[in-house]
Design a protein around this nucleic acid. Sequence first.
DNA 1: CGGCATCCGACCTGATACTG
DNA 2: CAGTATCAGGTCGGATGCCG
Lengths: 135, 135
Amino acid sequence: MSPSHIHVPHHCRTVTEILSRVGDKWSVQVVVQLGNGPKRFNELRRIVEGISQRMLTLTLRGLERDGLVTRTVYPTIPPRVDYALTGLGCSLLKTVRELGVWAIENRDEILEARRRFDGANLPEIGQDERRSDAA
Amino acid sequence: MSPSHIHVPHHCRTVTEILSRVGDKWSVQVVVQLGNGPKRFNELRRIVEGISQRMLTLTLRGLERDGLVTRTVYPTIPPRVDYALTGLGCSLLKTVRELGVWAIENRDEILEARRRFDGANLPEIGQDERRSDAA
DNA sequence: CGGCATCCGACCTGATACTG
DNA sequence: CAGTATCAGGTCGGATGCCG
């Protein structure tokens, strides 16, 4: 097996593709929640809260498509649909958590770097150009 | 440090924010390339190739802002600017590589899941509204 | 309750042209 | 070489309304 430090263009696309899913605004949050056990649609909607019905649907579809999540329909009335992580989803969750730990551990350093950068580069611009800052 | 399996809303935002950067189409690729050593602007442009000049600029700015990359200007003629990973950038690279490994290892499973899903859900598209929508 | 379709605005991106 | 400014197009995401 090839070591991870050599650059393989073929793999590059694969990785980028997966990273897109991970970087997706909601996918990871949903996966994390499902890590605590299966959830129903509106249950997820409440927990993630901030996600719209549309986005939750699309996100779940995407995750299901990639084999990360299973969708179980109970043809009752009212209908009930459970979503749960697959083995693949679980393994992704584990890996992503590493990244989460990294993020939390380095949060302060990043925030400080940001403050420093903003202060040094745009000290006299009244307009706010921040894109990724949470309000 | 709190275990990663308890959900802390505060951390949630932090993680999401970082994940956005990681999921960013170019950030990771640039970081990976810089992992092989400092690079000049157009050097990066050539290696990543596919990235536009604008996006490379924006990506590098973002990475610099987050303290992941350093930018060194040599006031020569013609100008020369080197970009390099910081310690923070290196540690991120290490963590992201884990994800890369995961992606490569599970690529086949994901692709197959996708094929299965697509085959099961959209077996007969294409004959819908063939009204030559060449707007 | 769970889900899809539509509309529509905000944002992201790439191409182009210009500067130091 | 490195970078900024501008503009047009595409995508993303939310709000709304309807269906099973």
